[in-house]
């Protein structure tokens, strides 16, 4: 099954989705939440640096598409 295949958010049945969600919404949940237990191998990665890294990757791909999104002095 393709991980990119969009699935409507109103899918019937409990907790079946959403699989086709925007990546940024998924990362909001995968990176800053979840049960945090200390693993053996990559302790540092389950923390802030991971969030920063991923956002950087996300942002750089967005800015390739949209060079100048700030028309009015930035967010709020």
């Amino acid at each position: 099954m393709s991980p990119h295949e969009p699935v409507p958010w109103e899918t019937p049945g409990p907790l079946s989705g959403p699989l086709g969600v925007p990546l940024v919404d998924l990362l909001d949940r995968l990176l800053s939440t979840g049960v945090v237990v200390s693993g053996d191998l990559v302790i540092a990665i389950a923390d802030v640096p991971l969030v920063r890294l991923s956002l950087h990757a996300l942002l750089s791909s967005v800015s390739e598409r949209m060079p100048a999104p700030w028309a009015d002095g930035g967010p709020l």
Partner: peptide
Amino acid sequence: ARAHHEVVVAAAAGGPTAPLALATLYR
């Protein structure tokens, strides 16, 4: 992210499921 999510969603189809943070690994 999507691979992790896909597994979590599949597990949760069967009952309450607590997802772990991305990149939780043990030896």
